[in-house]
C-alpha cells in the first residue's frame, strides 16, 4: 500500500514538477521561458567542469581494480569484518559499492544468480546495494562541479557511513529473514 503510493509518486514526480514549477511562476508573473533559458545556459559548463575530477577518480579506481589489488584489499578486510559476523561473500561487495556503481551492480546480480534470489545472501547483497551510493563517484561529481579540491573530512565521514550501512545490512537481514 505504502509502496504503491511511493511508486506512484516516483513515476509522476518529474512530469508534475516540470509543469507545476513554471505554473507557479506564471501565477507569480515570472517570465518563465526567459528564466528557464537564463538558468539552463550553465548546464553545459557544469558538466564540462566535472570532467577532470571524474577522469581522475575513475582512472585511479579502474587501474586499482584491473591490477587485482581488489583481491588483496578484500583478503585484508575479511578477518576484520568477519569478527563482526560479516559474511565473507559480501566483503568484496562492501568495498566495490563505494568505488563503482556498475561494478557493484554486476557483482550483486551475479551473487543473486549463484545463491538464488530468495537466499539470505542475495537479500543481504541487494539490501547493501540498495542502501548505499557510489561514494567516490558522488564526491568527484559534486565537488568537481564547484571546483573544490580540498575535501577535508568528506571521505572519512562518508566511508564511516558506508561501513555502518553495511554492518546494519547484515544485522537487520539476519534479524528479519
Amino acid at each position: 500500500m505504502i509502496r504503491h503510493a511511493l511508486e506512484t509518486v516516483s513515476v509522476w514526480a518529474v512530469p508534475f514538477l516540470l509543469v507545476a514549477i513554471p505554473f507557479v511562476g506564471i501565477i507569480r508573473k515570472v517570465k518563465v521561458y526567459d528564466a528557464f533559458v537564463d538558468g539552463a545556459k550553465d548546464g553545459f559548463n557544469v558538466a564540462v567542469k566535472i570532467i577532470p575530477f571524474l577522469v581522475g577518480i575513475l582512472v585511479a579506481i579502474g587501474m586499482f581494480r584491473a591490477s587485482g589489488a581488489m583481491d588483496l584489499l578484500n583478503a585484508a578486510l575479511k578477518p576484520l569484518l568477519q569478527s563482526t559476523g560479516f559474511p565473507a561473500e559480501l566483503v568484496p561487495l562492501a568495498v566495490l559499492r563505494t568505488l563503482t556503481g556498475s561494478g557493484s551492480l554486476a557483482f550483486t546480480t551475479d551473487l543473486i544468480k549463484t545463491y538464488g534470489p530468495d537466499s539470505l545472501l542475495a537479500r543481504m547483497a541487494s539490501t547493501m546495494y540498495g542502501s548505499s551510493e557510489t561514494t567516490f563517484y558522488v564526491i568527484a561529481v559534486y565537488f568537481g562541479a564547484v571546483s573544490v579540491k580540498r575535501t577535508r573530512h568528506a571521505v572519512p565521514a562518508a566511508l564511516i557511513g558506508d561501513l555502518v550501512a553495511a554492518l546494519a545490512t547484515v544485522a537487520i537481514c539476519t534479524f528479519m529473514f
Binding site: L17, L18, I21, P22, V24, G25, I27, R28, V30, V32, A35, F36, V37, D38, G39, A40, K41, D42, G43, F44, V46, A47, V48, I50, I51, L54, V55, I57, L58, V59, I61, G62, M63, V141
Partner: peptide, 29 residues
C-alpha cells in the same frame, strides 16, 4: 575509465541544463 568518465560527464549535460533552467524559474517564483 578516462573515456567512461567523459561520457558520464557529457551525459549529464542534457538533464543538468533542464533542471538548472527549472530551478531558476522556481527561484524567481
Amino acid at each position: 575509465s578516462a573515456k567512461t568518465a567523459v561520457e558520464i560527464a557529457l551525459g549529464l549535460i542534457g538533464i543538468m541544463t533542464l533542471w538548472l533552467g527549472i530551478m531558476r524559474i522556481a527561484e524567481a517564483a
